[in-house]
Structures are given as C-alpha cells and as structure tokens.
Design a protein around this nucleic acid. Structure first.
Lengths: 190, 190
DNA sequence: AAGATGTTTCAGTAATTTCTGAAATGACTC
DNA sequence: GAGTCATTTCAGAAATTACTGAAACATCTT
C-alpha cells in the first residue's frame, strides 16, 4: 500500500525520532500513521502501509497500548480490530507526561530515597549523599509541580502556557496581596 | 578500584536509566560517578572505577560534553585532564531541557512547518495536515512557554514551582485586574 | 466440531549499537 | 627531534535489540 508523500515523510520522521524516545522505529511509525489517519485502521492495513510484518505490528500495538496512546475498537459485522490513536492533543501531552514520569522519574526517586536513608561512612560518601539529596529535592519539586498542573483543565492549562514568563510578574504581584498566601499542595480546586 | 556501595548502586541505576534517555549505559554510569564525586576525576580513574576501557571513557566524555554536563579542567603541574560534572542542579535541569529540546523537539517542529506548507490533494491528506497542525500548535505553545521559563532566575523558578497549581487561582485573579493584561512573549523582564 | 478468520507468541535471524584494543595523534620535556 | 605521557580515533568483536515467519491460540460460522 502506498502512502501520500506528506504522510510518508511524517511517518518516516517519527520512526527516526522514536529512537530518541523510549520506542523503536516501527513503533514510532505505527503511531504516526494512526495519529494522522482519518479513520481507525486494521493491523493488516498498518503492516501493508508500512511494509512490515504482521507480527511486528502486533508487538508495536501492544507497546503503544502500554503507553495508552491508542485504542482498539470493534465495528459491527467485522471481526477485525480497528485501531485508532487518541484524538485530543492535550490529552496526549498529559498521557505522555504521566507515562514518561512513571518509567523515567519514579524509579529514580525511589532509589534516591532509599540511598538517602543509608548510613554514611567515608567523607566521599557523605558528599555523594549530599548531591543525591540535591537531585532528589529538585526532582520532587518538578514532579510535584507537574502533578498539580496535570489537574488543570485544558483551558486553564492553555492560559497558563500563553502567559509564559509573564507569570513571574504575576508572582511579584501576588507576594504583595496578603489574601493570596502560598497554597498548600493538593488543596487547590481542580 | 572499588566504589562504596551507596555510590555503586547510584551509578548502576543511572546506567540502566541512561538507556531510557538518549544515552547508553556507560555514559549514564560515567555521569553518575562524576555527579556524586567530591573532586574532579581523571579518565583513568573513571575507567578503573567503572571497569570499562579507557577508550570507552573517552567516547563517553565526548558525549557528555556534547550535552554540556561536564567540564574538563587542568591542574598545575599535571598533564592529565580532570573532569567534573556541572555542580548546580538547577543549571543541570536547564541544560538538559535545552539539549533535549534541541535534539527531540526542534527537528519535529521544523518538519511539521515544512509539511504544513505542502499543497494537499486527497481528503485523507487534508485530515492528516489538520492533525499535524494541531500537533505543531501544541508543541509550539509548550516550547514557547519553556523558553520563557528558562529566562527566570533560580529563585523565581523555585517560587513558581512551589506555587504549583495554585497558579490557576492566580490566573483567575489576574483576569480581573485590567492593568495586568496578557503579556506579549519576549517582552517580560528576565 | 470442523473450518475460517484474525491475533499473539516465540525461537531464530538480521540489524544495530556498544565496546574494546591497537594504532594514530597531540603535547610536552629533555 | 627523540622520548614520554595522555587522549582520540577507528576497525572489528561482542552484546543487545528489533524483526520475521511459523506455530499456537482465540473467536466466530456453518
């Protein structure tokens, strides 16, 4: 099956880029194809369009499902699965953020917490633990913030992004208003 | 050379995690070792501590330099290079954000802009282009915001992070103050 | 329950990436 | 400029990861 040139270029690019993210070339290609497709596709169609084996598509879809980026649907009177990519780009951003955090950040945070509890002996170890604490604290601050922002609805999130660094000006301002004291984490309205 | 257990675990973990980021196991290990070290190390020491070949260390250091995460220093009366990791964790976060953006995001943005200029023929292509536009817009918004935030000094950045989703409350508030209209990008004070 | 159709698993192969030792390069000393 | 010491490059070996076809499995139909 032959793809239109625009789509082919998009698909190939995502294949290359896939490598830089945690997925392999074919997974990137499959996702790109599904993302731009105007209808759900069967595994057979995907394999045909991308020139890869049927079994490879099956494994790729499994991977994409674990990232929660696709859904398998059934059409009446058709035994085949029809696969579609999540539609809302904001939802995609959120999902990716969650999954990457789960895979890349959380294990590190767990380890750091663990290592910080170890008793230290040599001064070299003391220093190492100090650096680990710094790393732990900055990661915790970043992920805590990400958690909070995740709770915002698309609209508030967009407004926040569009404000950009103007937020710093807003922060200055806020510090002069007593009624708007620092919010405690997790007590904000979503 | 034998590492203290705390440091060894840290190093091994970063080796594993390195794979999920864009670097290989040994590069992750080298960086982890340098990060927690209380003094600059020679390439020889690194190779010894981590049990890898001298040439591999050389390549790993080259990679880490391209990420701007390490610096090579010279001590008087010593011909060898002494390598140290960047010290300030906030600076590390900024540098990583910049480099990842350069490698992972910018090429995609360039491609998308290019593909969006192509004339479309079939309705399937039309739809694909529409999705690409959506992706382009969301990436642009996110990176533009990241640019702005990059300009904040450590202190403002930390305050912003600690505020968390409280920022949404602040946004509500802002919308009621006429003097604080939407800031134009790039015109804020750093 | 036998056949048809679709999906997943998996062992083996192919392709890619990583790592090493040897040689080349560079930089300083006597 | 010959000799030493440190670093880099690079071709090939080793290790890892990705991909395929065949078989197993699942589900529906007649």
């Amino acid at each position: 099956m032959n793809l239109p040139p625009t789509i082919e270029r998009f698909v190939l690019h995502f294949g290359e880029m896939g490598g830089r993210w945690g997925v392999n070339r074919t997974v990137g290609q499959i996702y790109a194809l599904l993302f731009v497709s105007d209808r759900p596709l069967t595994a057979e169609e995907i394999a045909g369009s991308l020139g890869m084996s049927r079994s490879n598509v099956s494994m790729g879809l499994k991977e994409l499902e674990s990232w929660r980026l696709i859904r398998k649907r059934h059409l009446l009177g058709d035994r085949r699965e029809h696969i579609e990519a999540l539609d809302d780009v904001w939802q995609i951003v959120r999902t990716l953020a969650e999954e990457r955090r789960k895979r890349e950040v959380d294990p590190t945070l767990t380890l750091l917490r663990d290592l910080l509890l170890e008793p230290t002996a040599a001064p070299a170890e003391q220093h190492a633990q100090d650096k680990m604490r710094q790393m732990h604290d900055v990661i915790e601050l970043l992920t805590g913030w990400a958690d909070d922002v995740q709770k915002l609805d698309n609209d508030s999130l967009m407004r926040l992004l569009m404000l950009g660094a103007g937020v710093s000006r807003l922060l200055e301002f806020k510090n002069r208003i007593p009624g708007l004291g620092p919010a405690k984490r997790g007590e904000e309205d979503a």
